[in-house]
Every structure is written in structure tokens, then in C-alpha cells.
Amino acid sequence: MIRFEEVTRRFPGGQEALSGLTLEVDKGEMVFVTGHSGAGKSTLLKLIALIDRPTSGQVIVDGQSTRRVKRRKIPAYRRQIGMVFQDHKLLYDRPVADNVALPLVIAGAGPRETGRRVRAALEQVGLLHKERQNPETLSAGEQQRVGIARAIVTRPKLLIADEPTGNLDPDLSLEVMRIFRRFNEVGVTLMIASHDIALIDRLGCRRIELDEGRLATPADHVADEEGGSWP
């Protein structure tokens, strides 16, 4: 689903966020990217979402090299990917349901289709009863779930999340991870950047650890070697 081939991202100052990184994530996998801040986690996700482009090497997503995606085609490309952000990036001038509906509105879905999908997405994150509220009135955990509902409302095959539990306490974090896990069970490929190693180990997913823009451990490292189990 995702393949990085010798990917380097060098900033104008000369420092490298990623240095010759090669990795692969299969279809239907749920993978965590870990590492200290500045290790290149965010850059890695940005390259997948085409928010940034590599200095050299190439990123292949769903069989398509991002290098071939022209600027004008970036919106259509991004619509195939669900994205979850640490700061939710919700719009506070409209209710929860309208936030979740935004990707469908962008894609040009009809009102009935939109309503149906929005309700299904909110139900999956357990917030159907709050669809008319303003996101500002929700807790951090609930806001993050709204962000997730928005990311999955178009049924993307790939979902990337940058520190989705960064601002949440352990219980809420676990709740969010459970939601992710459920999507994974129906075939969605997930790539999640996180520094919450304890939590990741409980989930038993593959972990890609970055250190100064390189792999810190072999890419096939499996976190639940020691019998970590899905709660």
C-alpha cells in the first residue's frame, strides 16, 4: 500500500528530516511510526499526504508514485486518503455533522448519500447523538473522534494519523485506538505516528521506529513479540 524507496527529505538549511528511508506497508496493515520528536514521523506522513515532497527517492501509495501527481491533481489524490491530526483541525463555525460531511461535500455527494454516510461515520465513533452540537462544546477525546469520523466518512482505503492521541489521557487514547483497530479489521490500511509506546505494545501492531530520519529497528519488527495482547 505504501512504499518508500530511498526517500530523503532535506530542508533548505541542509538538515535532513528523512535520510534514504526505505520501508513498505502492506494492504490491510496497521502500522505505527514511532520515534523522538524530530525523528521524521510527521515528515513521513506529510510525504504520503503530498503536503510535502521528497528531495530524492520516491513514495509509492497504492501503486502510484506521488512524484507523478501534479499540483492540480493533489486534491483528488488526497481525497483517497483519510487523515487524522493531533489538533483535530475541525471547523468551529459549524456543527459536528457538517464537519464530518465536509469531505463528502468536496467530493460532490448528494444530500441523501451525505446524510447516510455522516450518520454511519458518527455512529462508528459513538457520537451520533452529538451531531448537531458545535465541536467546541465537545471534550478533546470527542473532538478527536469527530476528526476520525471525518477521515473515514469517504471510506478511504488508507488512513494516516499524526499523533492522534497526543492530547488525550490513556483511557481516551485506548478508545481512539480501538476505533482504529475496528477499521483495520474491515480492511483499511492504517499508518499512525505516535510516541505512546506502551499503548502501541498493548495493541500488538508492527512498529516502525525512526531515529534521525532513518529506521532505528528492522522494518519487520513486531511489537507484540513479548505477548502483548489486544485488550
Binding site: 460532490g108 448528494g110 448519500e113 454511519a120 473515514i152 477499521f183
Partner: peptide, 26 residues
């Protein structure tokens, strides 16, 4: 339930035809 709903609608978003979509959006 929720998960099966997800499964039954992995199809891409159906748009309501290019012209009516364009018109409706405007």
C-alpha cells in the same frame, strides 16, 4: 452494526451526476 456498515459501503462516494452536482454546489 457499525463495523458491518463500514464493510457494506466501501464503495467510492457516489456523486449525483456532474451537471446536477455542479449546479447544486453553486
Amino acid at each position: 452494526m457499525a463495523v458491518s456498515r463500514h464493510r457494506d459501503a466501501v464503495a467510492p462516494v457516489r456523486t449525483s451526476g456532474p451537471v446536477s452536482t455542479w449546479f447544486g454546489r453553486h
